[in-house]
Design a protein around this nucleic acid. Structure first.
Length: 489
RNA sequence: GGGGCCAUCGUCUAGUGGUUAGGACAUUAGGUUUUCAUCCUAACAACAGGGGUUCGAUUCCCCUUGGCCCUACCA
């Protein structure tokens, strides 16, 4: 690549469903590399397989990238000077370039039926031979080819793989060399007129002036084919960088059977984009310089990213660490941000209609340090929105106390709390009063705080009694304490 | 069957021709505390195996083993 050439990378997913967590990381690395170099991040849709394209998948993809904050500079819906950015809209181009290769003697028409191909492959496999195409149509007479095409006979165009070895340098894996003998004569143009991935990717990357191809390492074995195609066209190839795979605990490729693979699944469960980004960027990359930091914003990542510290080996997707990151980022949110993110995880039935945003904000702030995922919020905060608490009386009793004591304490405490002015119904003030009261009555914290908190929440585990009481207000709090006293009778 | 890629705690990883092989998550034990969570402290835990090269290899080379990927008119 010539110096001074502007870096241009692309993320080129197939619209076969939802954005995969591995796809998001590929997009992220592309994005980070582009932005780190002041370059362009291009989005291109590779929908050359008509059977596998799913309606709505592109829109979903766009939404997910947006959620993650990975804005692209050129691509579907925003355009750009090298469009269109959807391969099914570029069909004429591929045909034209495939024909050009035939003219140059680098490719040839093939009329073999899929039946013949299957038979051929099965035969070779049975003999433990590599199942490669036998070049049956390589030396067809040009006139015959013309005639058969004219008759409308189904055909494909195949790349004629030359003799020799193909070598390229991968930015992550290093030098890779492969013997061309092991490469099949690739189909470039399918009988339905669509290009295969190999043709489309090379033509588009060239036409779109892509300087660096950064993709999953399942493409590494195909790269020599692409290098050969660039040579056949007489074009210079871009740089390549193949990313390690994100795998399951058992080291197999991340699969639906063993957990969630769609980014959308994580959004649904209440993972924040910051957490997902931070977590997946570390799956195969580290900031280097012996740095022991690992919490990074997208902007910091842009500054730090480079291929020097991208790993060669696969990385296991560890849900526990993701959860930890999510907790970290949830705790960093301001009350308003938390409210924004949290609201969509509640149903209207969770909240009722008598609670306003201010109230909800206070409620969820109390759970902020307690949750790992936003989706936990409705269940954990249920007692703030429902006054008829259903819990066994027994849990009102602290482990080092007994039922009578609990009742006695709550009854006395009730009269004390009753006298507090409404404007003093604040956590600090309430605490001061209660702690004072505990001292004066020669009681212990546990004897008082535990039953008080359970009376207010109906939960064995919850935020502290004073914070909860402050949010509930005097009336609802006293009401709950009274109910608890009754329960203990 | 052929080809390619890879190999440090359970996991993500740092690291070097000579280190007590470091950090984070998880786990365990404490501390704070009415509970849970947060927070703090500590503990546990790794260089796949075998050959070389070398005064010395976790580090460099080779082999083995293991894992992953490709081997479609799918991407």
């Amino acid at each position: 690549m010539a110096k001074n050439t502007k870096v241009r990378v692309r993320f080129a997913p197939s619209p076969t469903g939802y954005l995969h967590i591995g796809g998001l990381r590929t997009a992220l690395y592309n994005y980070l590399f582009a932005k780190n170099n002041g370059g362009d991040f291009v989005l291109r849709i590779e929908d050359t397989d008509q059977d596998r394209s799913v309606v709505g998948a592109v829109e979903n993809l766009l939404n997910t990238l947006k959620w993650a904050g990975l804005d692209y500079d050129e691509g579907p819906s925003i355009g750009g000077q090298y469009g269109p950015y959807v391969q099914s809209e570029r069909l004429g181009l591929y045909r034209q370039y495939a024909d050009e290769l035939v003219q140059r003697g680098q490719a040839y028409y093939c009329f073999c039926s899929s039946e013949r191909l299957t038979e051929l492959r099965d035969g070779l496999t049975a003999q433990k031979q590599p199942p490669m195409y036998d070049r049956h149509c390589l030396n067809l007479d040009p006139a015959e080819v013309k005639e058969r095409i004219k008759k409308g006979e189904p055909h494909v165009i195949r790349l004629k793989i030359p003799e020799g070895k193909t070598k390229f340098k991968d930015l992550i894996k290093g030098e890779v060399e492969i013997d061309n003998k092991t490469i099949d004569d690739q189909v470039l143009l399918k009988s339905d007129g669509f290009p295969t991935y190999h043709l489309a990717v090379v033509v588009d990357d060239h036409l779109m002036k892509i300087t660096h191809v950064l993709r999953g390492d399942e493409w590494l074995p195909s790269t020599p084919k692409h290098v050969l195609l660039y040579q056949a066209f007489g074009w210079s190839a871009p740089e390549f960088a193949h990313l390690p795979t994100i795998v399951n605990k058992d080291k197999t490729k991340l699969s639906k059977r063993q957990g969630d693979v769609a980014v959308e699944d994580y959004i649904k469960q209440g993972y924040l984009p910051q957490a997902i980004i931070n977590f997946i960027v570390l799956l195969g990359w580290n900031p280097g310089q012996g740095s022991e930091e690992e919490v990074f914003s997208l902007d910091q990542l842009i500054k730090k990213f480079s291929f020097d510290h991208v790993h060669k080996s696969n990385a296991v997707f560890d849900r526990d660490k993701l959860d930890w990151f999510n907790g970290v980022y949830i705790r960093q949110l301001t009350p308003d941000e938390l409210l924004d993110y949290a609201l969509s995880y509640f149903n209207s039935t969770d909240l009722g209609d008598k609670f306003d945003a201010e109230y909800i904000k206070k409620v969820i702030s109390l759970e902020q340090s307690r949750i790992k995922k936003l989706v936990e919020l409705p269940l954990l905060t249920k007692f703030f929105f429902e006054d008829n608490l259903d819990y066994p009386a027994q849990i009102l009793v602290w482990k080092k106390s007994d039922k009578n004591k609990a009742q006695e304490v709550l009854a006395k405490l009730f009269t004390t709390l009753e006298q507090i002015e409404a404007q003093d119904w604040q956590p600090a003030k309430l605490e001061a009063v209660v702690v004072d009261w505990i001292k004066n009555n020669s009681l212990t914290n546990g004897e008082v705080m535990w039953p008080l908190r359970v009376a207010l929440t109906g939960q064995e585990a919850s935020p502290g009694p004073f914070e909860v009481a402050a949010v509930l207000g005097p009336k609802r709090s006293l009401n709950r304490i009274q109910k608890a006293i009754d329960k203990l009778k």
